[in-house]
Design a protein around this nucleic acid. Structure first.
Lengths: 135, 135
DNA sequence: CTAAAACCTGACGTTGACGTCAGAGGCAAA
DNA sequence: TTTGCCTCTGACGTCAACGTCAGGTTTTAG
């Protein structure tokens, strides 16, 4: 499969795929004319890369952990990195959960238009009870 | 309280606080000489800002939603944004949970040094079973 | 065979949340 | 008063993950 097809299949841009190769995340066979050709599992690999990017890992970290995740091959150092990133993600989930709960509280408190609390803007309660953006 | 104290109290840099002001997220009183002075609740506000940045919101979005979250004041549009961001965070939590579980699987599979699966690198299993980074 | 579409390398542009530096002024202690 | 730290504005620097453009080659469809 050539780069365009892999791009549409995996939902990322052609530029991104070339960038992944540049970062050592995704290799390609080359035809005689120099065009990249990918085997089928490359699509899965791209999905995995996207997944790790989405979790906030950098290219460098992904490059270190990819063989570990894909081929189940690990060294003591990579295992430590793996555990560290897992814990980081866990902490991130906890933080996001708190943030979501906070937003939920706000939504529950004045999220329903008929709750009557949506029209207190520019009145005394809002003005003195809290630290506004315009002191 | 002046900017330095707020910075150490809330754990962000002085530069960040000035940036927040520039973005309309954090206001300050000014002394005659032009120095910023903050009331006590500013620390909480900074924590909240950090929380929302951490959830991936942009300055613009935070500026829109902050009065809503802090003063519990909302308009129909802000309520929609609020719900949208909540859903985005929820999706992010789901994705992160999947990523964490995947890492957990890897860790469980060859995370213990004595599991015997940590030394199969450069052997046949790894070579044919998966798509390595060097085809 | 030819034109369109896809691909190549190389290089510069973008964006957001700050970091950092320069030069000038403010403030409390000794 | 002077020392030393804090603060100010303004402006340029950074970094990562790409976007975009230029100029040229390759593949494919008709």
């Amino acid at each position: 499969m050539r780069i365009g097809e892999l791009a549409t299949r995996s939902g990322v841009s052609v530029r991104a795929l070339r960038y992944y190769e540049e970062q050592g995340l995704l290799a390609a066979y080359r035809s005689d004319s120099g065009q990249r050709h990918y085997p089928e599992p490359a699509a899965d690999r791209v999905q995995l890369i996207q997944m790790l990017y989405g979790a906030g890992l950098s290219s460098r970290t992904i490059a270190e952990l990819l063989p570990c995740v894909e081929a189940k091959v690990s060294t003591p150092e990579s295992r430590a990195r793996l555990a560290a990133e897992r814990d980081r993600i866990d902490a991130q989930i906890t933080a996001l959960t708190h943030t979501r709960d906070r937003l939920d509280t706000v939504i529950a408190h004045c999220g329903t238009p008929d709750s009557g609390c949506a029209w207190i803007a520019d009145q005394d309660v809002a003005a003195e009870a809290s630290y506004s953006a315009a002191p």
